[in-house]
Simulated scan of single mutants.
Amino acid sequence: MASSTVRPEHEDRPEEHDVARRLLASAAMLAYDPATEVDWETPLDKDFHGTSPEWSTLYGTAYWREMTDAQRKELTRHEAASVASTGIWFEMILQQMILRDVYAKDPAGADVQWALTEIAEECRHSIMFARGARKLDAPAYRPRRLAMELGRAFKTVAFGEAAYAAILVAEEVLDVMQRDWMRDERVVPFVRTINNIHVVEESRHMKFARAETRRHLSRAGWLRRRIHALVIAIASYVIVTSMVNKDVYANAGLDGERALAEAKANEHHKAMMRSSCSGLMDFLASARLLTKPALVFYKRAHLI
């Protein structure tokens, strides 16, 4: 009687594993330990900004022109801390979605080993962001309650392209900002180091998210693609609008109500967001995820 051979699961998806193997090799060659790479000991120098000033939500407004240089720097430090805190929130969501995705897969597969490597990097990033926010003398900024509950639901039910495309949106939006901040000598040095570490390691995560989004979409029918396009857009809207907490203005010593109103109407910041997301929108368009209902939320978030 002829015997049959059962092929291991990881042999059935060669292209997927080629990507994972390349990313594992990259992680082995270039990875950072924030505990030793970041200067945590030098006291905060308040002569520096927390972000590039042009990325401040008030840059270009009447209020910005009235602010002193010290106030501008204080505001950007609080904004940087808020973005870091939002990053921690979404990285926790990301880790749970990835773990759920690989839960029943062959642990010998390169894709599972890469997923665990990515989770390890995200854990280090979250600790790094938390320490960075504290060093910026900022409180623990958290997303509003509705966003927290939506995130709780999303991480529980999102799967396939909905999970990976949402991961990609969060990573790409933050990546564009941080590439500017890490090169800007006006930004406090330890924050520049944090941004550099995150940009280098997140470039691997974005490659994997793009590959997984395309792979899952290759099996998606018309209805599933339409539903997930809207889910991804809503998740993107919640993530992007949660990046800068409304409390940063009062905590920076400003008139909170006036600052929030001017930030919401700030055309400069909206233009920065749109220009920075052009590559991301091109990818979503190529994946046929920019449906008319989805575009409503991307436009409201000023991503397109």
Rank of each mutant, 00 (worst) to 15 (best):
M1H: 11
M1P: 13
A2F: 09
V6E: 15
P8N: 05
E9L: 14
H10C: 12
H10R: 10
P14S: 12
D18G: 10
R21P: 01
R22H: 11
S26G: 09
S26F: 08
A28H: 07
A31G: 12
Y32Q: 05
P34S: 04
A35S: 14
V38N: 06
T42R: 12
D47G: 15
H49L: 00
G50Y: 02
T51R: 14
S52Q: 14
S52K: 13
P53K: 02
S56A: 13
T57L: 02
Y59M: 04
E66Y: 08
A70E: 15
R72M: 03
R72Q: 12
E74I: 01
E74D: 15
L75E: 01
L75I: 03
A81H: 02
V83E: 04
A84E: 09
S85K: 03
W89A: 15
W89K: 02
F90L: 06
M92S: 14
R100S: 13
D101G: 03
V102Y: 07
D106A: 03
G109M: 09
Q113V: 05
W114K: 00
W114M: 12
A115Y: 06
L116C: 12
E118H: 10
E118Y: 10
I119Q: 06
E121Y: 07
E122Y: 01
C123H: 11
R124W: 11
I127R: 10
M128K: 03
A130V: 01
G132M: 11
A133Y: 00
L136E: 05
D137W: 00
A138W: 04
P143I: 01
R144I: 07
R144P: 08
R145T: 13
A147R: 05
E149M: 12
L150F: 15
L150A: 14
L150K: 06
L150H: 08
L150V: 08
R152I: 01
A153H: 10
A153L: 15
K155T: 09
T156G: 08
A158N: 00
G160Q: 02
A166E: 02
I167Q: 14
E172D: 12
V173G: 07
M177A: 13
Q178V: 04
R179Q: 15
D180V: 10
D180M: 09
W181M: 10
R183M: 10
D184H: 04
E185Q: 13
R186M: 09
V188L: 05
V188D: 02
F190I: 04
V191F: 09
R192C: 11
N195H: 05
N196L: 12
I197P: 08
I197W: 01
V199W: 07
H205F: 04
F208N: 12
R210D: 01
A220N: 07
A220H: 14
L223F: 14
R224W: 01
A235T: 13
S236K: 03
V238S: 07
V240K: 09
V240E: 02
V240Y: 02
S242L: 07
Y249V: 00
D255Q: 06
R258F: 08
A259S: 15
A261R: 14
N266I: 04
M272Q: 13
S276W: 00
R288H: 14
R288W: 10
L290M: 11
P293R: 03
A294D: 06
V296Q: 06
F297E: 00
F297Q: 02
Y298A: 00
L303Q: 03
